[in-house]
Nucleic acid binder design. Sequence first.
DNA 1: CTGAAAGCGCTAACAA
DNA 2: TTGTTAGCGCTTTCAG
Lengths: 354, 354
Amino acid sequence: MADKVGVHRVAALAKVSIGTVDRALHGRPGINPQTRDRVLRIAQELGYEPNLAARALSKRRAANLRIGVCVPRELRFFYDQLWEGIYDEVRRSRDYGVDFVFRPLPVLGAGEAEEIKRLIASTVQGLILTPGRPDTVTPLINQAERAGVRVVCVSTDAPASQRSSIVCVEPWLSGQLAGELMARCLPPRSSVAVVTGMLATENHARKCEGFAASFARFCSGGRVAEVIEGHEDEIECRHKVEVLLARLPQLAGIYVNTVNCLPVAEVLEARGRAGRVKLITTDLFREMVPYFDRDTICASIYQRPYQQGRNAVAMLVDHLFQQTPLVPASYLNPSLVLNSNLHLFRELRAHHST
Amino acid sequence: MADKVGVHRVAALAKVSIGTVDRALHGRPGINPQTRDRVLRIAQELGYEPNLAARALSKRRAANLRIGVCVPRELRFFYDQLWEGIYDEVRRSRDYGVDFVFRPLPVLGAGEAEEIKRLIASTVQGLILTPGRPDTVTPLINQAERAGVRVVCVSTDAPASQRSSIVCVEPWLSGQLAGELMARCLPPRSSVAVVTGMLATENHARKCEGFAASFARFCSGGRVAEVIEGHEDEIECRHKVEVLLARLPQLAGIYVNTVNCLPVAEVLEARGRAGRVKLITTDLFREMVPYFDRDTICASIYQRPYQQGRNAVAMLVDHLFQQTPLVPASYLNPSLVLNSNLHLFRELRAHHST
DNA sequence: CTGAAAGCGCTAACAA
DNA sequence: TTGTTAGCGCTTTCAG
């Protein structure tokens, strides 16, 4: 068991002091290039790996890492989980001497420009954002990045910006999975409908496209008969679904694209079409459980916001703290929630295991 | 921003030295019960949380935490991933001053009793095991636990033992998910078959039961026409499937319970039954990809060995290092692998992102 | 450009 | 029973 190699060992072998080793290792100024190369070579040969606990401890004193977090509280459930994931990972990072500045928004996009500006002004090194209005946020992100602030988008994206990374479930993939699953559940030549939020929202539109493409591929002769925009409004949504069901007695499936699935499930049950119209939803929260139990909801494509939050924080901390390269995008695999595995999801458990 | 509370602050307020605070916090002997209570109360009030980086650093000197890992190398793919998960988490724990003793077995169960005995003898505080022969391992586990060694089983279990925890995918659930999915894909009154390893293996038997139960529930009038034991033998498996297909021209689906799905897929293609017989498999490795692409494999229930490995190590380290209570069982949610999300699985990527 | 030394917050050994 | 002190491995300041 080879003895642990630390700065001291490297220093001894390079015949310099640990101070010099530190300068070499971190590319700090004030060191002779030749000494630096020699030290680096020796560190390499010895397989030197810094002890992160020690690093955290020693850094704590000085101006430390600060990360700003600007993520909405609403819509409920989804962002609750996102925050939980963020907090859990933050807790792990605390001992590494990372400070966090939380700037929750009341609802997606509300006042985000101001908060982001303020965060940038408060000398953070990293920023975690959920862009609500990509257009207005993009220039701010670019400004931050130019100033050396690493920006990680989570859950929603500002694709045209210079953000360092994005953590999300690709909307196209989410739709695609729903389409494949729907196709598997239905005979050839089936007609299905999609309930979305607003097609103007890129996220929603891409889910729809993914669904249509994949449904067409796996259900021969199948077609998407209609795409309904619910605008996240319960009344409107319910009404439109009623009309839909009345007009298409042959309708075999509905894919709900947004969190707004309860009205659809209710209408299906009220009209006696539950089960006969396969319902595939998005996301997951406790109120959905009874509909799963009654087979009104057949499956859900769950975007795992908790995991998204954790990953975003972990990735940024690792990068800022140990120079781990930031992958430009981390696309999560959504979970497929069926009746059988429903009970395993943390978000449905009574006692949140914080 | 309240100043960080550390042992010093607690000591100052309790009018004792940090040594006494340490004794109180850790229930060490040699402290007046009254002082201890006072210190604990004050620590509580101040919301004292130890700095784990500092703890790790200071502990490093003394007799440190040692965890033994005894997990097989074979069968391939599955245990490769399990090891990767273990290693990744081990790397994170290194800085916390935890030592690991790796005792890979050539194949599940081979010589495990000897290795486990040796590990116990080598004064480890924790043990991560994949019991191959639960009967022989159970007394060893009990002996270890009695000696204060925390044992965590991963992937396979020794349910009758006193092990502190188990990390796995419940076989019953795995089968159930397959059954539900299969039922969704097929019309009522379908006949399906199951290909398993050995029904004598509890793990395999329970997957079969889960599948049968769930298939019956979701496919009205459906039935499991046959359960084949492949004994992990390619030739035997292939032959039995050929016979099966010949005898049951109406067969609508096959659920393969073990990692041994390639022979089944090959036979289905050779006999022109691919796609018409829905094939649902278990686990995931690169050789399966072409069969997904050709729709020969419809879905796979993936047990996420990487995650199992990570979780087992993380759980044990957290417990040993910070007294986090060990949950008696951590049941993972298996992933559903479909054509659409296939590409997102790390195990299929060309360059393992370590 | 380089070396020496003072901590970061905690544990453990040793004194009292 | 309690207090004091020397590090853990690293970063950072201050001298040289």
